[in-house]
Computed example of a mutant assay.
Amino acid sequence: MEILDLDADVLAEHTASITAWLPVRTAPRRIVDLGCGTGAGTLALLRRFPAAEVTAVDSSTAHLHRLREKAAAAEVADRVRIVQADLDASTWPELGTPELVWASASLHHMADPGRTLRQVHDLLAPDGLFAVVELAGFPRFLPKNAPENAPGLEERCHAVLDRHHAEHVPHRGADWGSLLTAAGFTVEDERTVVVDAGPSRTDAVGRYALGSLRRMRGSVAPALTAEDLTALNHLLDTDSPHSILRRGDLTVRTERTVWAARRT
Rank of each mutant, 00 (worst) to 15 (best):
E2W: 05
I3M: 08
L4N: 13
D7C: 04
L11P: 01
A12V: 08
I18L: 15
P23Y: 10
R30K: 09
D33K: 12
L34N: 04
L34R: 07
G39C: 03
A44F: 07
F49G: 00
A62V: 12
H65L: 15
R66D: 07
L67W: 09
L67T: 06
E69R: 13
K70A: 15
A71I: 05
V76R: 14
D78M: 09
D78R: 14
R79P: 09
I82H: 05
A85C: 02
A85L: 02
L87E: 11
L87G: 08
A89T: 09
E94P: 01
W102P: 04
H109T: 05
M110S: 14
A111P: 07
P113Q: 13
G114E: 12
T116I: 05
F130A: 06
F130P: 07
V133G: 10
L135G: 09
A136C: 03
R140Y: 00
P143L: 06
E148Y: 09
P151E: 11
G152C: 11
G152H: 09
E154K: 10
R156F: 07
V160P: 06
A166C: 02
A166L: 07
E167A: 15
H168K: 04
H171W: 14
G173M: 01
G173L: 03
G177Q: 10
G177W: 12
G184D: 10
F185D: 08
F185L: 12
T186A: 12
T186R: 14
V187N: 01
D189H: 05
E190A: 14
R191H: 12
V195P: 06
V195M: 10
G198H: 02
G198L: 01
G198V: 05
P199R: 04
A204D: 13
V205Y: 00
V205C: 11
G206D: 10
M216I: 08
R217P: 07
L224M: 13
D228H: 04
T230C: 07
L232H: 02
L232P: 04
N233R: 11
N233Y: 00
H234D: 15
L236D: 06
H242E: 15
L245N: 13
L250V: 11
L250Y: 07
V252H: 02
R253E: 03
R253A: 03
R253H: 08
R256L: 10
V258Q: 01
W259G: 05
A260P: 10
A261L: 09
